[in-house]
Simulated scan of single mutants.
Amino acid sequence: MRKPKITVIGGGTGIPVILKSLRREDVAITAVVTVADDGGSSGELRSAMQLTPPGDLRNVLVAMSDMPKLYEQVFQYRFQEGDGALAGHPLGNLIIAGMAEMQGSTYNAMQLLTKFFHVTGKIYPASESPLTLHAVFQDGHEVVGESSIAGYEGMIDHVYVTNTYNDDKPKASRKVVDAILESDMIVLGPGSLFTSILPNLVIPEIKQALLETKAEVAYVCNIMTQHGETEHFSDADHVAVLNRHLGQDVIDTVLVNIDQVPQEYMENNKFDEYLVQVDHDFEGLRRECKRVISSNFLRLEKGGAFHHGDLVVEELMNLVRSKRP
């Protein structure tokens, strides 16, 4: 039998956790990575070179590669304050940017780098053009730019993307639509709902492919609410926002962590983006999706509350095996 095909869609620090564990399974992996980041090193390089931001692609590349630990440390090294124009830039971002200039696009650069670093699977930027994220709040105010969204006080109603440097309609990268349509499973997240996951899904071609695919669509729900994005959200609220942006109930399965983050841990660590643990609304979840998998997926590390990749992937693999003939 052929390997199950699993496509993971998202960005930030969330999906690398899943991809790192998934690459140890006998599956064909495709990662579709957001290109709407306009902050930090990625934002500077994107603005200077008009390329798709490299930061999320860098983290995915490391997660899916068998590169030795030393190579990873070199690739992830971030120049220190006081290093002039290089300050704050991870070396890997500069390598991806340089390769993009050599190869004519970030898409081409990533295809070469996946071979260079012996990546298990395929990595595609969601679009071959940098995108600008727009957030429309419930009071009608609109914020332009992913890095600016958390700074506005209010509840987000919806988001959409535009091409950053021209007026063309945003398009999916080549092969992304085919990957979605040919998958046995689509995994959304984990990651920031409005700034890591949805910027991919509101690209018209990707949205349409998700509506048409026969793949199982699984969403790994965030453990913590996020400042400026999902304050006071339950797990059902997260899924409702995804389904609303897609235009119908697309999410088949939701994975929910039920392990409690210790209060002492939260008090002793500064969660710069986090607020509180996501509330559970299992009745609401049953209205929004077909299946809920609730288990202990929590991993406490470096002052943060993350998903335990191996435990999440174990459930995903059980699900994909049960769906195959």
Rank of each mutant, 00 (worst) to 15 (best):
K323Q: 14
D281G: 09
I9A: 10
L275V: 08
F282N: 08
D157Q: 12
P325R: 13
A31G: 11
H89Y: 08
V144M: 10
I203H: 00
D26A: 15
S105Q: 01
L198N: 00
I95E: 07
K214E: 15
K214T: 14
G98K: 12
A209M: 11
P170C: 06
R24S: 12
L94C: 10
P325I: 13
M155Y: 08
R321M: 14
I203S: 03
E182D: 15
K115H: 13
E264I: 08
A236P: 10
S129F: 06
R46M: 10
V35H: 02
E128P: 02
G12E: 00
S234T: 15
G40N: 04
S47G: 09
S192G: 01
N166Q: 09
A85S: 13
G309Q: 05
Y160Q: 03
H232L: 12
R24M: 12
E72P: 05
Q76R: 14
V278M: 05
A28T: 12
S42F: 03
L91H: 10
G191Y: 00
R324D: 03
T253K: 06
G40W: 07
E283H: 13
S47Y: 08
V32P: 06
L112T: 09
G121A: 11
I206T: 03
D184G: 04
S127H: 02
D310P: 02
G151C: 03
K270L: 03
L113D: 03
V17T: 12
L57D: 00
G304L: 15
T106D: 01
A209I: 11
L210G: 13
V60T: 13
F75V: 11
V136A: 08
F297I: 10
V176C: 09
A215D: 07
E301C: 09
R287I: 06
H280P: 10
V250S: 09
D252V: 05
T230S: 13
F297T: 12
L22V: 10
I15F: 07
N318D: 11
D272C: 01
G55V: 07
I223R: 01
H89P: 07
D38T: 04
G191E: 02
P4V: 04
G92P: 04
N296W: 08
K207A: 12
A87K: 10
P54S: 01
D237V: 02
N243G: 11
G43E: 05
L91W: 11
D237S: 13
R46P: 09
D235E: 14
Q73K: 15
I6F: 09
A236K: 06
K175I: 00
H280E: 08
A97D: 02
N318V: 01
G189D: 06
V217W: 09
I186L: 14
L19R: 15
G84S: 08
A126Q: 02
